[in-house]
Design a protein around this nucleic acid. Structure first.
Lengths: 364, 364
DNA sequence: AATTGTGATGAAAACGTTTACATTCGCCAG
DNA sequence: CTGGCGAATGTAAACGTTTTCATCACAATT
C-alpha cells in the first residue's frame, strides 16, 4: 500500500515528521501541481483524481505549510492587532469585534499588547509587519514620527481612537467629545448645576477629548460651576477622587467620571461613606462596560459600541488592503449614546435597566 | 547615493513595493548572507560592516518577511489559541495570561474562536496548524477521535480544561471538582442544610465536574437536602432558576450556581423579589470573574486563577515544543480557592472585600 | 618565504508551495 | 488519416530567507 520508506515514516504513529505536498503527490500518484490544484479547489481536476488526492491528504493528515504558501502568494491571510493592553472589558470587547469581522473575512488574527511601553510598542510593531497583511493599531505612543520610523510603506494599517491624523493611514475614532458633551447636557437637563469631572490620564487623547466635551458644554453656562479632579482611568483613582469630593465643604450635585472604572471606584467611596447615589449625589461614567449595569445603583454612562469599533476598523483595513493605491486617508468616527440608568436619578424599572437611550449622530 | 532603479523605486514615497534582504545587501554593498548575519546578531561581522548594514536597513525600513524565514528555519515563532469564544471576563483573562507568557518567550499569539460549532472548530484547527509552532486548545468538541482526525502529529498541542485524557497531548485542567466540593463544605460549615445547585450546560465537562463536587460532598449527609436546577451558564438561565426557586413552597437556605454569571442572574431575581441576600437566602458562584466583587452583596465564589491557567498552559506547550520526543502526556491541575464575600453571610469589612481565602491543594 | 590557521565574507542550496508554461492525450472536423 | 484543439496533468521557476560550505585576505608560525 505505501509506496516507499518516506510514506512509511510519515505514517508511523507519533512521529514528528511533517507531511508535505510531495508526500501527498507520491501517495496519490500525481504531481505536486495537481495536488495543489485539487486542494485549492480552483483549477480543472478530474473528479477521480481529486478524490484520490483528497483521500491521500486525509490519510496523511496533510496540512499545507502557511509559510511556503505565503511566500509565493504574498499573502499571509492574517492581520495583526496591536493594543495597549489585553486586560479588562474594553479590550475584550474590542478583540471580539475584530475577531468576528476577521473570521467573516477568513482572516487570522494576531494579537499583541504593548503595556504602555514605547520601545515595546516599536518592537511589537516591527515583529508583526513581516507576518501580516495589515495592521490594526491602538496605542498612546504612535504619532506621525513613530509610524514613519517603524512602519513600512508596504503594510496597510488602520489606527483606532488616536489623536494623530496623518495622511499615512486611515483612522477609526470614538466620538469622545460628542459623547462627553451629550452626557454633560443630560446632567444639566436633569437640573444639576454644581458639577465635578474626574479626568483620565493626561497623555491620553481620548481622555482629553472627553474633558473637552464636558468643559465646552458646561463651562460658562449661567449658574453652572465645574470642578476637575485628576484620575488615571483606574478604579483606585476614582475611589480617591470620590473621597476627596466628600471631604470638601461644598459637594457637587453630580460627578462625571471620564471612564466607568473610575466611576465605579467613586461609587465605592460614596457607598462606603453612606452617601446615597443618586439621592444625595449623581454619578455618571463613560464606556458602558458590561459591569456598569450591575452596579448598585446601575450606572448612567456613555455607551461606546466597542465591538462595532473593532469591526469597522477591520473592514476599513480590508478595504485598504484590496486597493493598492493609497486612498486619501479617511477618518471614521463612531457615535456614542447616553445610556440612562439609575445613578443619575432617572426613573427606572425595578430591574434597574436602562429605560431611555439617547441616540447621537453618526458621522463618517 | 542610490545604486540603481530598484533602490530608487523602493525609496519612492508611498510606494507599496516590499523591501527585501537583497535591497539591503545592495545598498550596503555586501552579500545577502552578511546582511542576514548582521541583522540576526549571531555570527561574526565587522563592526563597520554591521553599522553600514544597519544604516541601510533602517533607511529602507526593511523588515524580514516572516514567511521566508519560517520556511527555512521551520519555526514560526507563533502559537495558536483556539477558544470556544472571546466574549466575557473569563476568556479575556485567559488570553491575557497566555499573551503575557507568550511575550515573555518572544512568541506571537494567534487567536481564534469557534463559537461552539464543531465544523468551525475543525476548520479553525486545520487552518492554524500550518502557521504555528504549537496549539493551545479549549473546546467542548475536542475528543480523542476529533484530534486524531484533525490534528497532525507534527504539531504540539496542550488541551485546557477538557475531559479527554488521551495520551496524544498534555492537559492543563481546573480542579472543578475540588473547588465545588470545597464551596459545598463551606456552605455546610456555615450551617446551611437545605441546598440548591444551578447546573451548567450538560455537554460541558467542567459543569459536570462542578456538579459532581457538589453532589458528592452534600448528598447523603445527615439532615442535608439537595435540589438541582438546569442552567446553561448564561445570566438569563440563572435568573430563571432564581425565579423558580422563589416560587416553590420551601425555599433553600443556600444556592450554589455552577458559574458566576448564573449566580448574578439569580441574584437579580432575588433582588427584584425583595428577597435579601444573604439574610433570607445565601448565594455562591464559581469562577470569581471580576464583576463578582462588585455585586450587591459581593459574591462568595470559587476563585479560579484564570490568567495563571493560560500561563501554565503556554509554558507546558513550550516545553513540549522543545522536547521532540513525545513525553508521556501529563495532566496539570490548577487549584481553586473559596473566596468568601458577603453573599453567604460572612462578616466582611465595610468595603465588601473578601476577608478570608481558603487555600486548597495544588496538584501537578 | 612558505605554510598554516583564523576570521570575515560570498555563492549557492534548501525550505514547501503556487503557477506559468509545456506536454500529453483523446477527440473531432476536415 | 491527419491536424488541431481543449482538457488534464506534469515540469520547473519563483518567492525571501537562513545556512553550509567555499573562498579570500591576512597574520602567525615555521
Amino acid at each position: 500500500m505505501y509506496q516507499d520508506d518516506r510514506i512509511r515514516q510519515v505514517m508511523a504513529k507519533g512521529s514528528r515528521v511533517v507531511v508535505t505536498i510531495k508526500d501527498v503527490a507520491r501517495e496519490a500518484k500525481v504531481s505536486v501541481a495537481t495536488v495543489s490544484r485539487a486542494l485549492n479547489g480552483n483549477s480543472n481536476v478530474t473528479p477521480d483524481t481529486r478524490a484520490r488526492i483528497e483521500r491521500a491528504a486525509a490519510r496523511l493528515r496533510y496540512v499545507p505549510l502557511g509559510a511556503a504558501r505565503s511566500l509565493v502568494t504574498r499573502r499571509t491571510q492574517a492581520i495583526g492587532a496591536l493594543l495597549p493592553d489585553l486586560f479588562g472589558e474594553f479590550f475584550s470587547e474590542l478583540i471580539r469585534g475584530i475577531d468576528l469581522a476577521a473570521r467573516a473575512r477568513g482572516l487570522h488574527l494576531l494579537v499583541s499588547s504593548t503595556h504602555g511601553n514605547a520601545d515595546e510598542t516599536a518592537t511589537a510593531l516591527r515583529a508583526m509587519q513581516g507576518r501580516v497583511d495589515g495592521l490594526l493599531i491602538m496605542s498612546p505612543h504612535v504619532d506621525a514620527g513613530f509610524l514613519r520610523k517603524h512602519l513600512a510603506d508596504s503594510v496597510p494599517a488602520v489606527l483606532m481612537d488616536t489623536a494623530l491624523r496623518g495622511r499615512r493611514c486611515a483612522h477609526v475614532n470614538i466620538d469622545n467629545f460628542g459623547g462627553a458633551s451629550a452626557m454633560t447636557a443630560h446632567l444639566l437637563a436633569r437640573g444639576y448645576r454644581n458639577l465635578a469631572f474626574i479626568d483620565g490620564p493626561e497623555a491620553n487623547h481620548d481622555a482629553r477629548e472627553r474633558r473637552r466635551g464636558f468643559e465646552e458644554t458646561a463651562a460658562g453656562r449661567h449658574g453652572v460651576t465645574v470642578r476637575f479632579l485628576q484620575g488615571d482611568y483606574s478604579e483606585e483613582s476614582g475611589y480617591r477622587a470620590g473621597r476627596e469630593l466628600l471631604s470638601t465643604p461644598r459637594r457637587p450635585e453630580a460627578v462625571f467620571a471620564a471612564n466607568d472604572m473610575m466611576a465605579i471606584g467613586c461609587l465605592s467611596a460614596f457607598n462606603e461613606a453612606g452617601v446615597r447615589v443618586p439621592d444625595e449625589i449623581a454619578l455618571a461614567g463613560f464606556d458602558d462596560i458590561p459591569i456598569s449595569r450591575y452596579m448598585h445603583p446601575p450606572l448612567t454612562t456613555v455607551g461606546v459600541q466597542i465591538a462595532q469599533l473593532g469591526h469597522t476598523a477591520l473592514e476599513r483595513l480590508v478595504t485598504q488592503m484590496q486597493t493598492p493605491d493609497t486612498p486619501e486617508a479617511d477618518v471614521t468616527t463612531m457615535a456614542c449614546e447616553v445610556v440612562v440608568r439609575a445613578s443619575c436619578g432617572s426613573r427606572t424599572d425595578t430591574n434597574g435597566e436602562a429605560v431611555t437611550r439617547q441616540e447621537l449622530h453618526i458621522h463618517t
